[in-house]
């Protein structure tokens, strides 16, 4: 009797989980497997196994450039996001006038389609855009417009613009869940503001910062639409993958091999990052 009801309960649990599992296996696991298999097939063939797709990509100097570029972009953007988010969060938590407005401003890059953000930034930073008009207007010694679009620093700026909200939101919520008494305790104990920040606030919100920056990093690493339209000659991995199937005939095996390399790099990096995060928050 008890066995029966336990079995039934397991059955109910399983049937409740079924849609989620179906979605996971059908829309993620199976397609991933297809990609894995495809990456091991010779181009254009459905039989035979080969590593040539990996080797032919990894053995080129271009592969290194692409991977370095991808990491440079995503890590720089993550770092910038952290610096910016901490400053912003420290300001916003004081609840100055208009802080609600800025809180809302903070999430705009996440709600608006990335393509549009990128388009707006391209127009703003263009050689005839407002940014250059302003710079040339204020600093007369700047004679030529500053080239920002289609450069690496420009891309980092775009990435940061688009993906910093993850970090900013978690940092702000970590900061606001701090017990104000702890800061007062440090204050009374003789710590000046810099000490309080350095020894008390930063260590305590570090888990929040890291958790948010993981999201920023993942988004920046996998970014596709932004470098596609704003990258110019700089192609990170995602664009490199897409360019393979944009050819005629499409090179699915080559694209799949690159996708696998990208996925593995991200998983490896995330594992390391997560380990640091766990250690820090213990």
């Amino acid at each position: 009797m008890r066995r029966g009801s336990k079995l039934r309960s397991t059955g109910v649990t399983l049937s409740l989980l079924l849609p989620g599992l179906a979605c996971f296996f059908g829309l993620f696991f199976y397609p991933m497997m297809v990609t894995v298999v495809r990456s091991l097939r010779p181009e254009g063939s459905d039989t035979g196994w080969t590593l040539v797709n990996y080797i032919s990509f990894l053995s080129t100097a271009k592969a290194r450039d692409v991977i370095v570029l991808t990491f440079t972009l995503s890590l720089s953007a993550t770092l910038l996001s952290i610096l910016f988010s901490v400053a912003l969060a420290l300001i916003l938590r004081k609840k100055l006038g208009g802080h609600r407005f800025f809180r809302l401003t903070m999430i705009i890059p996440r709600v608006v389609p990335g393509l549009i953000g990128a388009l707006g930034l391209l127009l703003f930073f263009g050689s005839r855009g407002w940014f250059n008009l302003l710079v040339m207007g204020v600093f007369p010694f700047v004679e030529k417009p500053i080239q920002i679009n289609y450069t690496v620093p420009g891309l980092i700026l775009f990435y940061t613009w688009l993906y910093f909200p993850f970090t900013a939101l978690t940092t702000l919520s970590a900061l606001e869940s701090l017990d104000p008494g702890i800061e007062e305790a440090a204050d009374v104990a003789g710590a000046n503001k810099w000490h309080v920040l350095r020894y008390v606030i930063l260590p305590l919100i570090m888990p929040g910062i890291l958790a948010g920056s993981v999201l920023t990093f993942m988004a920046a690493f996998g970014a596709f639409s932004i470098p596609l339209i704003a990258g110019g000659n700089y192609r990170p991995l995602s664009v490199e993958i897409y360019k393979q199937i944009d050819l005629t005939p499409a090179r699915w095996s080559a694209a799949s091999a690159r996708a696998m390399i990208m996925a593995m790099l991200q998983v490896i990096f995330l594992t390391i990052y997560m380990r640091i995060l766990r250690r820090r928050s213990r």
Binding site: F24, L27, F28, Y30, P31, M32, M33, V34, T35, R38, M218, F221, G222, F224, L237, S238, I241, Y242, I245, W252, A255, S256, A259, M260, M262, A263, Q266, V267, L270
Partner: peptide, 15 residues
């Protein structure tokens, strides 16, 4: 799926 770059499984989904 949120930890893997979307383009990676998008390839598989397309196929």
């Amino acid at each position: 799926p949120r930890m893997i770059p979307p383009i990676a499984y998008a390839l598989g989904i397309a196929q």
